[in-house]
């Protein structure tokens, strides 16, 4: 999973705003908006001889797009959108659509929300393969909602496999349980769904729990719904090509994963 996280990390994009002259409040709003697109915001000051308030979208040193900051700021103001349909769109934001979202240190609540959202997509599709890592199987066994969801997925026709250390038994269930005997996946909460080929439904969440100072994993002792439980490095994406790449990488890295050929 480390390879998947590294790959996703490389997909991260940055918007640098040069010689910003607006308010700090608007900049914070813009940062939040870009964060939702999985894009990091930075500011930079130059010697002031060039144009000011320019936003540049870049990735690994390559410039992908650029625009005046005003057109981005117009996009944070949804109040005006409610009043008039003629507000201009930002082409730079259109460029960001569907890109990888980078969300460091997601809370457990956010990760549950994301997992539920992706599981719902799979359920609606009623087909395809879904692989979900829970770290420990007890995380599933102790949650009626999770058992119910994966049962519903399997019954709807989704080829669902769950992974975790065998610290609990799951019996009489219609989905596939893979026991992670060697602890290969003990730090990873993940969900990979291939959308059964439908690009609108492909989704992936990959995360790694950060050990505490004494090296232990909080998730192994705490209830999964406890929001104070461990911190995660986490990425998610709904970009079809990126999800495909993640399936490839996961297949190369783990024999454990029951990926279809």
């Amino acid at each position: 999973m480390r390879a998947l996280l590294d790959y996703l990390g490389q997909q991260a994009r940055t918007v640098t705003v040069y010689d910003y002259s607006g308010t700090a409040e608007q900049l914070a709003e813009l940062e939040a908006l870009l964060h939702g697109y999985g894009t990091h915001l930075e500011t930079a000051d130059t010697d002031g001889s060039g144009p000011a308030d320019i936003a540049v979208l870049h990735q690994n040193g390559s410039v992908l797009d650029a625009c005046a900051v005003d057109s981005l700021l117009a996009r944070i103001d949804f109040e005006r959108g409610f009043e008039s349909a003629s507000q201009p769109g930002s082409e730079l934001l259109a460029e960001l659509s569907g890109e990888v979202r980078v969300k460091p240190a997601l809370t457990i609540t956010e990760m549950v929300r994301l997992s539920r959202d992706f599981e719902r997509q799979a359920l609606r599709e009623g087909a395809g393969e879904l692989h979900a890592g829970f770290q420990q199987l007890s995380q599933i066994a102790n949650s009626d909602r999770t058992v119910e969801m994966y049962t519903a997925l399997a019954e709807a026709g989704v080829d669902a496999s769950v992974y975790g250390a065998p610290d609990a038994t799951l019996e009489d269930i219609p989905f596939t349980v893979v026991e992670d005997e060697q602890g290969e996946l003990e730090r990873h909460w993940f969900l990979l769904y291939d959308g059964d080929g439908n690009p609108d439904r492909k989704a992936a969440l990959v995360s790694e729990e950060c050990p505490t100072e004494d090296g232990s994993l909080v998730s192994t002792v705490a209830d999964a719904t406890d929001q104070t439980a461990g911190d995660y490095d986490s990425y998610f994406t709904t970009d079809p090509a990126t999800v495909d790449e993640l399936f490839e990488l996961a297949g190369d890295e783990y024999e454990l994963l029951r990926l279809r050929e």
Partner: peptide, 27 residues
């Protein structure tokens, strides 16, 4: 829903993060 471009829709917004886009579609 970040749909693929060939999908048909009354009004589409490129991502659920674009609340302004939703507001404009409503207008």
């Amino acid at each position: 829903t970040e749909q693929t471009p060939d999908s048909q829709s009354s009004c589409s917004v490129n991502s659920p993060v674009d609340l302004t886009g939703i507001a404009i579609c409503l207008s």
